[in-house]
């Protein structure tokens, strides 16, 4: 899906937990996330902290969208 949408010329950032799969399916901008059933959250922490965590991940995704890449890139912290 990532690849087909990116083919239209729109930048796509893929947020997922299993980075090797993302690399295999051909995503170009990748943000590693928390866990498979809750990529953008963590039920073990306070709701307030969870929102902060999610916000950080989304900010990282937006940063990736603002970054020129020439090849598949994994954006760690």
């Amino acid at each position: 899906m990532v690849k087909e949408i990116e083919r239209t010329g729109l930048p796509v950032v893929h947020m997922c937990t299993v980075v090797p799969i993302s690399l295999t399916v051909g995503a170009n901008r990748i943000i590693p996330t928390v866990a498979i059933p809750h990529p953008l959250g963590n039920p073990a922490i306070e709701k307030k902290d969870e929102v902060t965590l999610r916000r950080k991940l989304v900010e990282r995704a937006l940063k990736a969208l603002e970054t020129e890449v020439s090849d598949q890139t994994v954006f760690e912290d």
């Binding site: 949408i5 930048p11 796509v12 950032v13 947020m15 997922c16 059933p37």
Partner: peptide, 9 residues
């Protein structure tokens, strides 16, 4: 739309 965030589990 200018950009896409795609999330996967």
């Amino acid at each position: 739309v200018d950009a896409v965030i795609l999330t996967s589990t």
